[in-house]
Amino acid sequence: MEEIDMGRYDRNMNMLTKEENERLRNFKVCVVGCGGLGGYIIEMLGRLGIGYITAVDKDAFEESNLNRQILSNVNNLGQYKAIEAKRRMESVNPEVVVNPMVAEFNDKNAEEILKGHNIVIDALDNIQSRLILQDICEKLSIPLIHGAIAGWYGQVTTIFPGDRTLDYIYKNKVQKGIEKELGNPSFTPALVASIQVSEALKVLLGRGDLLRKEVLYIDTYTQEYHKVRF
């Protein structure tokens, strides 16, 4: 294995060991959704030095994304989000390979998109697609880091094959989240994405305590943070 200049990762030490830092570039992470959550997630994974990131999103940037989606700016409206993720990482950390997939994630293509990754990060924007994501990750035996946002609120959980935690937190066949009424501001995506990335890092490195079989339910309006166990 070629020696890489670890200078850019100097501030990741000594939180991570040099060996752990080097291991990160061998991991493949699939980020499903490149919007509010996904943009921040890709940014953080890339700066950590995750070697290979698949970025999945069918949409192009529009004006209403500018309030929260870190990959969007006034110059790239109309451009595909997944492609912009790749462009962004080329200027942030060119050592990272970003594989952009301009595609709608659905039950037809899910397996093809997800296979071969060490971990999948849920940055989708609807409940139905998340349930498909859980099913296929389970089938492929890939850990899944779930995150979702709505206005002042958010939630994160780490799902291993067999846990099926989404079955508990989207009970009663709920079809739509409260984000449909509340919208999403700039800060909950960044907050939830940060927690998701910290979970992904721990799963990849095999250390630390995980939000497994428990959901961190976040309320930034009252600053209440509840862990709900299942």
């Binding site: 959550l37 924007d125 998340r130 979702a148 609120y153 989240g177």
Partner: peptide, 10 residues
């Protein structure tokens, strides 16, 4: 009992 609404956005 505790009641939480669905959070599903991204």
């Amino acid at each position: 009992i505790s009641l939480f609404p669905p959070v599903g956005g991204g």
